[in-house]
């Protein structure tokens, strides 16, 4: 892909203040460590990881909803991290977000017209009938009726609310939409409709998605490329086929093999590698690779120093012992 990426994240670091002791300063907790990503126009990058992996923190930091400790976020050639005040507010029109919980992400006391029209008022100064006409168009774009704009959020089901949230995110025709677990709170029956809607909108509007989810099957379906996070680190980035069919990082493989397949014959006949242990303690992070304590391939080198990213079999992986994959290998069998 020779095109200029629409969003580029380089060396993103986020820290939170640690627990304060009565005397002395607390060491900050590093929630995101040196994450670099890029997204092409109209592309969907899936970002997967378990709870505590820092994937939602990455989303909030690149949206500047929380302040990153270091790193650069470049959106359409503009350095977001250098902006402040009204310049930052203006730049926000190019990157929007859809949140997980459609119940808390819509102001319960605001009409749908006000919720979806807010960005139009703020950025384009649209008011009254003019604004409502645009809101109605947006509602129809996401599969709602134009006259729904005079309703309150509580009158809609979860799936409908998420459509309203999507309409709000698309109001200014942004280049990138960050979907943070945008379908995770929905029932299976509506979940796939929202995914289908997002896919259709991508083709219509050429919008790029950063699709954050813990649900690997959903990510597999919607993404072009996938990035895997573990304990605040990016551990592997590759195309969706590489990640799902030829995972190179042992963690990616373990993650894939842990997802139960909805077919008892295959699920029970499948070799699964159940990971033992849990994610390391965030207050006392390990020096080397955070996955080393749970990894069957770990050597002394792994516990000493975090491995650098390197190219391996077409994907990019941070591991000293990337898996060799062929259709006959064990890794392949596990992921199937």
């Amino acid at each position: 892909m020779s095109e200029q990426p629409v969003l580029e994240v380089a060396g993103l670091e986020v820290s939170f203040p640690g627990k304060k002791k009565m005397f002395g300063k607390a060491a900050p907790i590093r929630a995101v460590k040196g994450v670099s990503l890029s997204i092409q126009p109209g592309e969907t990058l899936g970002l997967v990881g378990e709870s505590g992996s820092g994937k939602s923190t990455v989303a909030r930091a690149l949206m500047r909803l929380i302040e990153p400790a270091a790193g650069r976020v470049t959106l359409k050639g503009e350095d977001l991290t250098a902006l402040k005040g009204s310049a930052l507010r203006k730049a926000r029109r190019n990157i929007q977000m859809v949140f997980q919980d459609p119940y808390s992400s819509l102001d319960p006391s605001a009409l749908v017209a006000d919720t979806v029209g807010e960005a139009l008022e703020v950025h384009e100064g649209l008011k009254g009938k003019e604004r409502d006409a645009r809101v109605a168009e947006l509602l129809e774009l996401v599969g709602l009726a134009g006259h729904h704009l005079e309703r309150y959020p509580y009158e809609f089901s979860g799936g409908q609310r998420q459509r309203i949230a999507i309409a709000r995110a698309l109001a200014l025709n942004p280049a990138v939409v960050v979907c943070d677990e945008a379908v995770s709170a929905l029932d299976v029956s509506t979940q796939n409709q929202i995914i289908g809607l997002l896919e259709g909108l991508r083709e219509k509007l050429n919008v790029a998605y950063l699709f954050i989810s813990h649900d690997l099957a959903v990510v597999r379906h919607i993404s072009d490329r996938v990035a895997v996070m573990y304990f605040g680190h990016l551990v592997e980035v590759g195309t969706v086929e590489q990640i799902f069919e030829r995972p190179a990082h042992p963690y990616t493989r373990a993650l894939l093999s842990a997802v139960p397949i909805a077919d008892p014959v295959r699920q029970r006949g499948r070799k699964t590698a159940i990971l033992s242990g849990e994610i390391p303690d965030i207050v006392n992070p390990p020096k080397g690779c955070p996955f080393a304590s749970r990894c069957e391939f770990a050597t002394d080198a792994c516990t000493e120093k975090m491995p650098e990213f390197r190219d391996h079999d077409g994907s990019s992986v941070a591991c000293y012992h990337p898996l060799e994959n062929s259709p006959t290998s064990e890794a392949f069998a596990l992921s199937q």
């Binding site: 299976v188 509506t190 979940q191 409709q193 379906h221 799902f244 909805a262």
Partner: peptide, 22 residues
């Protein structure tokens, strides 16, 4: 059948199915 069809698959890609309505 609808519930089973609505499960997104881990391998391959096909158009998604769901059970419309509530």
């Amino acid at each position: 059948e609808g519930l089973l069809r609505a499960v997104p698959k881990l391998q391959g890609r096909s158009e998604l199915a769901s059970i419309p309505g509530t």
